[in-house]
Amino acid sequence: MSVRVRDLTRTYRKGKGWRPKGEEVTALAGLTLDVPANEVHGLLGPNGAGKTTLCKILSTVLLPTSGTAEVLGHDVVTGAAEIRPRIGIVFGGERGLYGKLTARQTLRYWASLYKIPDAVAKVRTGELLARLGLADKADDLVETFSRGMKQRVHLARGLVGDPELVLFDEPTTGMDPVAARDFRELIGELRDEGRTILITTHDMDEAEAVCDRVTLIDRGRVLATESPRGLAAMSGPHRWVEAETSLDVTGIPGVVDTETRNGVLRVKTTDDRAARAVLDFLLDRGVRSVHAVPPRLEDVYLDLIGRRGMEV
């Protein structure tokens, strides 16, 4: 087991001073989670669910309030020194980089903090830069990089210690679609190399595309851990219909929700019969390309959590 978390809680205290005494905020409320070795595991949940808190605890920069968390067989409190060299962290966005260092210097700096001998660091830095498509920009200052390139520097930085477990906290926030696709490929490669990956995200499509299993968390608790497909099956009897149309179907009995994206109408219905009725209604009016479709992870997510906290 790469990650083993039992009844983990974490609270923060508001207020100032060396020991703040203010109001208590619960970020994790008894979370239990197992991530076997070599799995790509997604953590899905709205803003404030506790995803970042969990990542920080697993990366040993934050202590749990109660419960236990083990990473690669070591406790995050007592075994932090054993864990640190073996994990990599990539926290989303562009922050955390020195604008006045080049990409190569950035990696050399972090390689030294991961105690990698200079000769090895030199080679590995070159390999990582090439792998992330930064080879021809290796000696440019990071501050001249686009957002996507900075994110790639972050990815390279997270891999510089050749980690067995990589923690990604919202790695694709603000990535353009091409970069996001490259990122998915990278995740696949990292898994093929035998690494374990824990990835938090808002993006259901991404989770569905890259994760072996996902855990849905809300208010610091696990709602479900499943394969994306298995999770999708949890949305009960609901059925979905998609069609290229602008017709209004909200009057049909059994229609729960409708949504139009890129000209495609997506209708959520209570059950098989209601879905049938919507299909018939649309076909009768000459609408082509009408399909009954399986639920997406997003549908399940919305069923279980609602629309709260979806904004990035």
Partner: peptide, 18 residues
């Protein structure tokens, strides 16, 4: 300010010599 501190704390090397 640039949020590099938590990244440093997660690294195996100790920070004060750096």
């Amino acid at each position: 300010w640039i949020d590099a501190l938590p990244l440093g704390m997660a690294a195996p090397g100790s920070l004060h010599p750096v």
